[in-house]
Structure formats: structure tokens, C-alpha cells
Design a protein around this nucleic acid. Sequence first.
RNA 1: GCGCCCGUAGCUCAGGGGAUAGAGCGUGUGCCUCCGGAGCACAAGGUCGCAGGUUCGAAUCCUGCCGGGCGCGCCA
Length: 522
Amino acid sequence: MSRSGALAALAEPLSIVASALAGETIDVKLERPSDPDHGDYASTVALQLAKKLSRPPREVAGELATSIAGADALATEPEVAGPGFLNLRVSDAWYRDALAELLDAAGTYGGGSAATRERVQVELVSANPTGPLTVGSGRNGAYGDSVARLLEFAGNDVEREYYYNDAGTQMERFRASVDARRRGEEPPEDGYHGDYIAELATIDGDPIPAMLERIEQTLDRFRIGIDTWARQSELEIEIPAVIDELDTYEADGAVWIRSTEFGDEKDRVLIRSQDRGGLPTYEAADAVYMRKKFERGFDRLIYVLGADHHGYVPWLKALAAACGRESDAAEVLIYQLVHLVEAGEAKRVSKRRGDVVLLDELVDAVGIDAARWYLVTRGHDQAIEIDVELAAEKSNKNPVYYVQYVHARTSGIFREAEGAPVAPEPYAGIGDAERDLIKRLVEFPDIVAEATERRGPHAVPVYAVRVADDFHRFYHHHKVLQTHFDTVTPEQQRFRLALCRATQLVTARCLDLVGVASPARM
RNA sequence: GCGCCCGUAGCUCAGGGGAUAGAGCGUGUGCCUCCGGAGCACAAGGUCGCAGGUUCGAAUCCUGCCGGGCGCGCCA
């Protein structure tokens, strides 16, 4: 949808001709061949069309080639290769236009890809305040916040919310554990035993607000800004009224919601039977909560949950349907769990026992930038094993610094350049490293659009590393600034400064999308 | 038993129908009279878990199996 103008300009004529041939709309995608002999860009559309048209693919490719031959953006005639690939070689004019487009868009380059601007709520972390945030919550936050940043960049109106339980069994156990400590006793067997319990025992009053304050500090430090906080106790008041409006029935003394009618895999209990206490379940609070979220005007509700909650997905989807919305209005993002290892051995963790690795400990060990990078760079459906000692040891080799270095280096060049002119006009005979860098940079809009659509922010740092590769190669091969012993022409300097500026813009945006700083110096 | 996720280089991971499967770390070899060497160039290293299927074309889609992670409470 929001393809970069430069790439779209190349692909569009092909799309038109291909669509005419096929009798249906075909959106031609261009790819970058790994072998430079295959041109700057290639399309496989002829191979795909050949069967439908019952014609040899090379013949179809030839027809497509003829139809776009002579375009300004092309340096040579399109070539038909292999079984029916169509290979394109782009002109200097194309590079100029591509670079100019990027520089003009500046900080908005690649943004605004949302087809319609939605009000989106991302509910993330939502760890109950019975202890400090763990690295598992850190993954939730790093993933959820990056998705939120992508959605914002695409043009949506995004709110981050943290939901917590401030009433219920776990909370009472937590309070009882702190109280026990205050009396100088050991917390109960089923209570909480971490060191932080002893710390909380030294302050008076309800320990939950103090715990929440600590959680918020950790999140701030981790560059996650929570817009709103939701408490379960506030929702519980409205449970009876909401239940009246839902499709429920009584069985075995409990009140059930007929969620299977809305696609759930089983009906769920909303009010426990008397012999189990007769109190509402967590699901009852969910029902109230989701209804209120929709009332607040959100078009889309995103839930970020660990893989241990994946059985919850059909429930939330069904609940959206029960609220009279599309089930897709509730979107559940599942990330695989973070496993802790210690000296190669899997470690059994329990929050209650207190033997966990805290997010603060990870950040202390490797720094914020490396921690966020590390937690977001692997795909969310990949389980992470983390050994904090090893992570600390390896942190100075984290690729995040390689990418940040690009930003620092370009910043340094502009400090040195002292306002020298910048222009996207290629000088005669530009180098391959310069062309490759531009080709890399113009991929950015497609990369972010796809990362946004797929809720896969890890594509952004992966791409940023490729940008860094291409930039460092360019930098190594070409001097940017004219100095007393370098022969850089004014045309070369202007153009290369434009490349530096474009690289700096794209790199800064990539880093920001994953919550990592863009340093001017390192 | 049923469901979701994963299996790609020694290690950690990208790759979601295209040409010769990539990166970082680790290993080996070169490069600082040079705008920042946190860099560059090069090398070694692969039955993409196994077996079928779909396709002109499969690491990628489908089926089965093997191995690993996580679920399947009137817990929260």
C-alpha cells in the first residue's frame, strides 16, 4: 500500500501490463537478486503468469520487457533470463529520485502506511504487582512496545495500558507475606519469598502501591511509557450488570458463559458455585474489561501474552464476538517464553520462591540498549534462553552497537561537514557500494510496513544490521569529505553527504522503533 | 490423548513460493601516514530434523513421523 515511490515507480508499469494480460489485478513485487549479473531488481511475475495464460514464461517475460523498455528509471533494456525472470537495471536518475524522496520525507520516511487510522489499545506486561518485573515481563514489554511504536509510526492512535490484579488470592498471599516479615516471621509456605519482600516490610501500609511504583520505574527505565493503568477491583463492581447482558446459563451451581457460540473451544465459568466460594472468576473481569475497552472507543484491542497463555486466545476472540464486534477486533500476540539457564543448565524458576532473573538485573548487566535489542530481535515465536552472566560477558559484542555506531559515525561526519551542501544528484560514475546503499535504504518502507502488518518488530533490527553493513562498506570505499589530502569533488561530497543523511535518518528510525537510543557519539 | 509454537553453520539466530540458503559470535588470514578500527576485505564451516505430497520451482505450502517448549482447572 505505502510502497516507496521509487520502487513503486519501477513496479507499477509491470503491474499494469501483467494485470491486463491476466485479466485481474496483479501487484508485481520486485526482489533484489543476490547475483549482480541478474540486475538491480528482478520480477518473477512472468513465471507466475505463464501457467494461467498457457504460454511459455520466457515469451510472457519478453512481452513485459517490451512494454516497459525505455523508461527513464531504467539504465538498460530489461532482460529475460533463465526460465523467465525479468531483470531490470536502474538508471542514475532513478537513484536520484529515490534518494530525493527519502530526504524530503526525512523523519516520516516509511511512516503512515496504515490504510485507515485506527484507535488501538495495546495491553502489555500486565504482571501482577506481587514482585518486581522479570525478564519474561521484559520480553512482553519489549515486544508489545515495539508493536505499539510500529502501529504509531504507521499512523494509528495507540494507547498502552497495564492491567493488574489488586484483589484476589495471590494479592492476599502477597500482603500476608509482607505482614509476616513485618512481624519478623517467615512468609507462609504458599507465600512470596524474594528479598524484595523484606524490603517492602520496612515500609508501612499496603505494599502494593509501593510495588507498582517500582514496576513503573523499571518500565520507564526500559523506555516503556504506560498511558493508563487498569485495576481488576474497579471492574469487579460491574460484573453483575455485565453478566445480565451476556448469554449465560447455570450448571453445577455455577454461572457459565456460552462462549462456544462465539467460537470458543469451551464454555467458561463466570461465577463459581457456592461450594467454591461463589465469587466471580478472572474471566468475568475479562468480560467487563473488554466491554469497557470497546466503550472507550478503541477499534482494535491488542493483548500481548506469553505462550503459557495461548489457550486464552479463543476466549478473548469469542469475547470480542460476544461484545458484538468482529472477533479480529481482539488480537492476541503470543510470544514464546524466556527460559533461564545457568552455566548451561536449565533453571527452574518460580516467582513465589523469588529465584528469577529480574528485568532490572538484566539491564544492570548489559545496559538498556542491548537488553531491548536482545529481547526484540528474535522472532516472537522463538523461545529465548538467557544466561545473564553470559549475556553480560557478550554484551559488548551485541550487534546493537554496530548499528548505533552508524548513527554516531554519520553524526560525526556532519559535525565535521559544518553545514556543507547536501544533494541527492549522483555524480558521474558512482560506485557499486553507493548504489547498494541506496537500494538498501529504499527497502525501508516495505520492511516497516511488513513488520507492522505481521506484528513482527524483529524484522526492523535485522534490517538495520544490513543497512549498517552497506553503510560501513560504502564508507570504507568512498571518502565523504574533501580534506587537504583527499580528492573528493564537490559533486561527490554533496552526493555522499546525502547518502550519510539518508542512512542516519533510516538508522535512527529503526533504533527508535525498537526503543533503542541513537547516540551522536559513542 | 487433543491443541499452539519451534527444529537452518560449532553457538545464538534471520530467511514465510524463486536463480548459488544468510548474519552475528567463535575459528583462520590480510588491512590503521585514512572524514571515528565499536570498522573493512577474505577463508573455513550446511543431508535447512526425517519421509512423502503440491509446484516449472519448496528451508518456505500440505500430510505423517521423530525431537524440544507450552497449554488443555469452578487457578490467576
